[in-house]
């Protein structure tokens, strides 16, 4: 514990840690009524290079363990984007209208209708088909997609019988994990590296923390569906 106290994280040369086996230096817990201090992990202080920020926090039986690591590009992902399927169309239907039955009522959109949809919502229409299901007991289920920051984002919208949005679910999302898809140079560094190189990020990364992604394109997509509803479905 005393060792840890002497070394602020600011002192650590984190760049020195790359590609080295990392061991926890020590642990700390904040002083306070509920907290008690203890040391965890070996105090492997012999080399600065084996040191990294390691935090332990204990409260009501829930312990926070946390560490930052820097990995070199050799450990980078093979594909910059990884897609997560959250819901299939059928799953989304059952979730958004439990117990409902769904009658496909796909509509094709004429050029004229597309133009008035655009005028109404201010968002460009893409496809010429409105994927819509009539739900037993009233309401509509619609599926569409928008172009996100990195890929298409398919989403589902549930409308009640008066055409108001009940809920929106994202069906699939391709998370940007790193690198630049459009940069051939960036991609080239992975050619021939797939075999035998541990692709830790690709497999292990389940979440990203970075600049906040805007969901504005989905909001626009929902507006577009509402405009399409008003023009194609509302008065039929």
């Amino acid at each position: 514990m005393r060792i840890a106290r002497d070394i602020g994280l600011a002192d650590l040369l984190i760049n020195d840690l790359i590609d080295r086996p990392l061991k926890p230096l020590a642990a700390f817990e904040p002083s306070g009524a509920e907290a008690s201090r203890e040391t965890q992990g070996p105090a492997a202080m012999t080399s600065r290079k084996a040191v990294y920020p390691y935090i332990v926090w204990r409260k009501r039986g829930q312990t926070m363990n946390a560490r930052f690591l820097l990995l070199s590009a050799a450990l980078m992902v093979a594909s910059p984007a990884q897609a997560t399927v959250y819901l299939t169309v059928e799953q989304a239907q059952q979730l958004m209208f439990p117990g409902g039955s769904f009658q496909p009522d796909f509509r094709s959109i004429s050029d004229e209708q597309a133009a008035s949809i655009e005028r109404r919502c201010g968002v460009a229409t893409k496809g010429r088909q409105l994927k819509v299901w009539r739900v037993s007991g009233g309401g509509w289920f619609m599926v569409d997609e928008v172009i996100g920051d990195h890929d298409f984002i398919p989403f589902a919208v549930a409308l009640d019988d008066r055409g108001a949005v009940k809920s929106v679910e994202i069906l699939e999302y391709s998370e940007y994990v790193g690198g630049d898809v459009r940069n051939p140079k960036w991609l080239a560094q992975f050619i021939g590296k797939q075999d035998g190189t541990p692709m830790v990020l690709d497999k292990d990364i389940q979440n990203i923390s970075g600049a906040t992604l805007s969901s504005q394109h989905v909001t626009d997509g929902v507006r577009r569906l509402l405009a399409a509803y008003a023009i194609l479905l509302a008065h039929r």
Partner: peptide
């Protein structure tokens, strides 16, 4: 394991945060 992704920086280094209950 959470990838920390500073936007606009080249990807020579990949920073990750390992978190449990945090």
């Amino acid at each position: 394991r959470i990838r920390l992704l500073p936007d606009g920086r080249d990807d020579k280094l990949a920073a990750v945060a390992d978190v449990e209950n945090g």
